[in-house]
Design a binder for these strands. Sequence first.
DNA 1: CCCCACGATTGACAAATTCTCATTAATGAC
DNA 2: GTCATTAATGAGAATTTGTCAATCGTGGGG
Lengths: 230, 230
Amino acid sequence: MSSAPKTESDRTPATGRARSAPTLPGGRQARRKAETRQRLLDAARTLFATRGYDATRPQDIAREADLATGTFYLHFADKHEAFLAFIEVAAEELMGVIRRRAVGATRFEERLGSALEGLFDFAESQPGVLSAAFADAAVIAAVVPSGASLRDRLADSLARGLQHDMDRGEVAPDYDARVIAHGIVGMIDAACVHGASHATSRAELISNVTRFCARALAVEGRPPTEAQTR
Amino acid sequence: MSSAPKTESDRTPATGRARSAPTLPGGRQARRKAETRQRLLDAARTLFATRGYDATRPQDIAREADLATGTFYLHFADKHEAFLAFIEVAAEELMGVIRRRAVGATRFEERLGSALEGLFDFAESQPGVLSAAFADAAVIAAVVPSGASLRDRLADSLARGLQHDMDRGEVAPDYDARVIAHGIVGMIDAACVHGASHATSRAELISNVTRFCARALAVEGRPPTEAQTR
DNA sequence: CCCCACGATTGACAAATTCTCATTAATGAC
DNA sequence: GTCATTAATGAGAATTTGTCAATCGTGGGG
């Protein structure tokens, strides 16, 4: 929480030794370092997801990774940076899950349903990670790096798909795709939270959210699709 | 972050002195104490909203309130408890804003529109407070007190209204009101975040979200209302 | 008014945590 | 093998959190 110390995240890449060509990228040294960083990230993930941000200390992360406390600071400036790195990794994974699940899905409601299925599976296998990834990082620290949050990525992806659907007349054209996409992401987040804390079945949850969105997006005068009815 | 010290939040109310009747509730002492707590809460609000949770320290809150650090711990067990108290107060205020705005609104889309207007006004006059109130407290600390979050309160209120609307045939009856209510709260949250960070006008935002929800909830075969069309 | 008991607040400092950096260990080029 | 460089270590400096003895403010009784 002091001014930024020199860490790996700030250092320029090693340009090589005065006497020879750059280090081989696959060298044991580089691999060892990458492995250490990975261990720290894994430990951070475990602790942030189970204890929450507040109760997780840098010394805990280092210990969980079976490393010295000083090593933590070689890789991250502070706890907050470790948290941001964790949610960045989680966001990437989640986008990958959604992409994989979307294979073969063409209509909007199919894409939404498969995304929800994927997110639910993820949330079940890794409690706490999804909600951390969906969290508004600005509440934890006022200055948020410019990288895109999970919400933004998901909303961008949805907005593109929606715009495409609008252009083809598959979806009502009189919405701002970006606004609606962000709204749907908010809904997805809420559904995941709801699924984790209420007795509603997953199928029921997915059905409600999917029907809701499909109906909202339905082109007027067009016969309802299966997803819009029950 | 150690085990709970004795604070005001843990103490039983003073039962009076051994020699006489209980202290008068309106006494200067009681008023002074309440004022001190209020000053701490105001300071906490200012700092949490502008700096974020991480960079706000108990000593900062005490200083901002022009009080000694020890006084902070007489009122709150730790930083986290002060944060929870802040978002609790904010949630109450926000529910009040929404209630006041809803006066005279009967149809769902009217209620939603006025709620959004109220929230946007609030967000504009107090940056950072709304997003903190909407945040998932479980990301900050794993153990969240049983009090209802802003999301839950808003969703409960919406679910009651929706259920009522369904019973009267004003809204499609084949949704789980609670699931949909939570989803709409997620949408509201996303709209507020979007409004704070994008160039979309407020009217456009409200129109998109309101139309989206109104269409999703429309009773089949019923003529569209004004809010469902553009 | 004074006295006294009790509750509210203070701030020095003990305890805990964060972070630095001299030292040690591992790597890789020659 | 030697030597320079990079990665990791952990003691301890710096900072923050939280405690508690001392002080201040209040209120009741004489």
